[in-house]
Amino acid sequence: MSGLVFRIQALFSRRAVMLALAFGVSLSGMARAQTQAAYPAKAVRLVVPFPAGTSPDVVARLWGERFAKATGQPVIVENRPGASTIMGAQVVAVAPADGYTLLWTVNNTFSINPYVYPKLPYKAEDFAPVTRILSVPYVLVVSAESRIRSLADLVREAKAHPNAMSYASAGIGQGTHVAMARLLNTAGVTMTHVPYKDYFISDVIAQRVDVAFDASTGAIPQIKGGRVRALGVSSTKRIEALPDVPAIAETFPGFVGDSWHGIFAPGKTPEPVIAALMAYSRRIVEAADFQAALRDYGLTPAGEAPDEFRKFLVDDARAWSKVVRDNQISAD
């Protein structure tokens, strides 16, 4: 039977070559097309460098469900949290470049970590950008019991009492830390940073710290539950999920502090595979139900092509590296 299968495959291969030559198609072009058409032929491993139940994990699974439905191949989400996405990124950096191990990550991996950490076990060239799925607005929040009721109040208080106020973050060099540093620089005020290893919002609610940036996915339930008060969002304009909360850019024109989620493959993954991944992802991102799910979380759909994503990454890294340098942010 195996010999028969081999002969049939050989027959189809010879026939494909003859057709290609007849229509003036190069063999290399035909091979690329066949590779793209065949992908994916088995389960895809999606490494998420965050714990289960966090925003990146939840959205990655939403994408995975739709990718599996579209392709008929399962997506296995593998959570590899730790070290500011470094552990998960390292796994994918050394994985086979065949499109069957992918990284779902955020801005820390490429736009912040290279400037915060003196040495990393990966470099940008180890990855091939596929697409930016979405942007993640941060929401500036205080306790619902705080006397601070607006961004203007916060800036006024901070100017009157330099470093007396405190802000929480998910850790040194994390997006919530660097975004807050950018805001303080923009406003010309100083506060005391309180980095956390775990989720910090309970201490904001209890007023053990004064203020924090939190991702929209975590902040919105707390706002709707009446436990925190939103002072502003880090996007260039207001978001649909919080229409009454002003963009910080309304007070400080040009300010933006969003994070993002994106998909990356190992660096030498064939272009047809990248193209197939992009095509599937674009259809997912453009689907009305997926966009509605993202907006419910306060997220903004993106869906850039690989070339656009690469340009975005260069600009994003340039902006955040300046914040890191200006504030001398470093981690071991």
Rank of each mutant, 00 (worst) to 15 (best):
M1P: 09
R15F: 13
M18T: 14
L19Y: 10
L21G: 11
A22K: 11
G24C: 10
S28E: 15
A31H: 10
T35C: 11
V44D: 04
L46V: 08
V47G: 06
P51Q: 10
R61I: 01
L62C: 11
F67T: 04
K69T: 15
V75R: 02
N79V: 03
R80W: 12
M87D: 15
A89F: 03
V92Q: 02
P96W: 01
P96I: 00
V106G: 11
Y117V: 03
P121S: 00
L134E: 07
L134M: 12
L134Y: 13
V141L: 05
V142K: 02
A144K: 12
R156K: 14
E157H: 11
S166Q: 05
S166R: 02
H177L: 03
A181I: 02
P195M: 01
D198Q: 14
V204E: 10
D210F: 09
V211W: 00
I220P: 05
P221G: 04
A230P: 06
I239M: 06
E250N: 10
P253K: 11
G254H: 00
T269F: 01
E271N: 13
I274K: 01
M278P: 09
S281M: 09
R282M: 13
I284V: 01
E286Q: 15
E286W: 06
A287V: 01
D307P: 05
E308N: 12
E308G: 15
A317F: 10
V323R: 01
N327D: 02
